[in-house]
Design a protein around this nucleic acid. Structure first.
Lengths: 362, 362
DNA sequence: GCTAGCAGTCTCGAAAAGTGAGTGCCAATA
DNA sequence: TATTGGCACTCACTTTTCGAGACTGCTAGC
């Protein structure tokens, strides 16, 4: 068989590896990703145009193992990439991929079907990412405090009971019940709502702290009762809730298709992580702290979490307008088609960001 | 060992089974639920006060098998309950259980921590049900159209763009963007909002169809533009969305603890069902169509779904005030502690209903 | 520097053998 | 007539054994 088209004949330069070693590493990673079987020297000479015998490959592979790029599961087995091997492959050897226009078009069309509601859109993104990646999709839902305040309404419910409804430009509405110490005149509520809308509409929720709110309400005459002002401040704080972000999962069943997860212990520890949410939430957020807009990859031990040290995580942030709202992630076996996954997650983030930007309220 | 305290000495009458057969069936089910191993005649004589020899038990068990209450996995194994066996146990033999007051108290306290937001409360219910049952919890979120309309606000966003925000007494807010054919005066929006609130507040969302809305808006002078009226009607229809109900899952990892799911095929088919959602949604809703408020149990083949014919499903509806909002369910192995599960799900539904009723808006 | 050949190592799967739990049946018994 | 002890038999499960196959590292020769 001739050289596989996905393994380019001419490779980028990797200072510490000569051309042949780089090519061998590339083919080992590629072959192992495709077959899930340790790769032996004979397989390589048969399937790829190496121009040398298997004995030479053996020598080279031994060298690559000594330098930490490959490992042997046991003495009489072929080689498997190490974290370093995968890392070198991803950073320097792998050809960049982009999603085919046909697939990209389908993805876009699916987003259109999600409607305008933020929750729905994010759920749809999770579903699509899981489906297209055939892997576990993890999505951190939009943070509240990076959304723009659009409108507020204080609604008289009963004596000493006021409902505060807040709308953001992301089309998210949140409500909060205020129980002021005195009965409040519905007209005052309308006036307060109007004043807050006039003065604060368009600001980030994160900016709407006690000072901002009191400043607006203090200017009213007659002044509002302090307990109501406190209630509105508390309402904004509650709506904002930067600490509580929803995290969505999809496609857990795809893990069962990977031979590396045919082990109830591993499966259990991953599902526990999913259920517990908090750890994965932090791991996913860490991955994009640098604020890049290209996919970020963390491989095996790089995740610094024993439960998933045989997994890799691909992450990318998504936006509404120019504000970063949340993160998409794919968690899969370390043996994943990195090029495809990165192309897929980048395209998904693009379409998601575009769709979110389109549905933002004026 | 003496008779186990969970298997009562005196059993209810089962017309078609004599006292001893009923007792043997009870102990077989009880023992199998506890150990997950087929139950043999020797085990029964050793662990329970039967007063007869194992040979007699063998005769009785053969009889119970002939009548369809027990089955033998293979010739030289003990017996396992059939669907009929479990059904008889659940309906007539099993002692009723209630949740201990300590556990019930903890459950109530956990609900308190969920706050007032409907979404959060339902998510909390899912988590708690999964955690306490150590099983897969399935929760059908509240239907929109059984909620009471409380307040509406039409908000001017831009020319030919109006945001409609609807609040229900369940404290759920939904928004819908209306794009009328003409520019609308913000004052008209306020008047329309006031009219709709005055006339329709307190009605079920399900009642707010085209007629109800047009009747109110037709009385306005000057009349609203027809396209805006259409928009409001569409908005109510969209908010109501009876066909789209969220369904929540929790505790999938607990399946891995049951020996009956140590099989990737079975596991896969259940996780596929979870991911697909629609089938389980229908199965869960079917279970409570009778409108009872006690737990309903469906065992194995009774579910009429090949993928889960080795599972049982316990369901119960939950309420806000006197309206049924949704359903709680536990999906687990057929070999589940039915008494405990039924007590648990009943208590959870009670606390959930109580908490929801408490946080309903006036 | 490369290669052919070979001995050595280790995993994996199939086959074989042994183990034990549990049954059904029967003749004896109260 | 219901019950019991005894016994032969069955069958899944575990352990062991064994051979095949895959791959390596090494060495001597080109």
């Amino acid at each position: 068989m001739s050289a596989n088209s996905n393994v380019p004949e001419s490779l980028p330069r990797v200072p510490e590896l000569d051309k042949r070693k780089a090519y061998i590493l590339t083919t080992v990673v590629y072959e192992y990703i495709a077959t899930a079987e340790p790769v032996g020297s004979a397989t390589l000479t048969q399937k790829y145009n190496l121009g040398v015998s298997s004995a030479t490959i053996r020598n080279e592979m031994a060298e690559l193992e000594a330098r930490g790029y490959l490992v042997q599961p046991h003495t009489s087995a072929g080689r498997v990439p190490s974290d370093t091997g995968y890392r070198t492959y991803v950073d320097r050897l792998m050809p960049a991929e982009t999603l085919g226009s046909e697939e990209s078009g389908r993805l876009r069309a699916e987003f259109m079907r999600a409607g305008r509601a933020l929750d729905e859109i994010v759920e749809q993104a999770t579903r699509l990412l899981a489906q297209y990646s055939q892997s576990l999709a993890v999505v951190v839902a939009p943070s509240k405090d990076s959304q723009t305040f659009r409108h507020l309404q204080l609604i008289w419910l009963a004596e000493r009971s006021v409902l505060m409804v807040v709308v953001t430009t992301a089309g998210v509405t949140e409500q909060h019940v205020i129980e002021p110490a005195v009965n409040v005149d519905p007209d005052d509520l309308t006036r307060a709502s109007n004043a807050l809308n006039r003065r604060l509409s368009g600001k980030l929720l994160a900016e709407l702290d006690r000072t901002a709110v009191s400043d607006v309400l203090a200017a009213m005459s007659p002044p509002l009762h302090a307990s109501l002002v406190d209630g509105v401040v508390a309402g904004f704080a509650r709506v904002r809730r930067p600490e509580e972000r929803r995290i969505l999962f999809g496609g857990a069943q795809h893990l069962l298709d990977q031979p590396e997860f045919r082990d109830f212990k591993k499966l259990r520890s991953i599902l526990d992580l999913v259920e517990e949410q908090r750890t994965l939430y932090h791991v996913v957020l860490e991955s994009i702290e640098r604020g890049e807009s290209t996919p970020s990859v963390r491989i095996g031990g790089e995740l610094e979490l024993d439960d998933i040290n045989e997994c890799s995580l691909v992450t990318i942030p998504y936006r509404m307008g120019d504000r970063s709202l949340g993160v998409l992630a794919i968690l899969g076996a370390r043996r994943m088609p990195y090029g495809r996954m990165m192309a897929l997650i980048a395209a998904t983030a693009d379409h998601l960001s575009q769709h979110l930007t389109d549905v933002e309220l004026p």
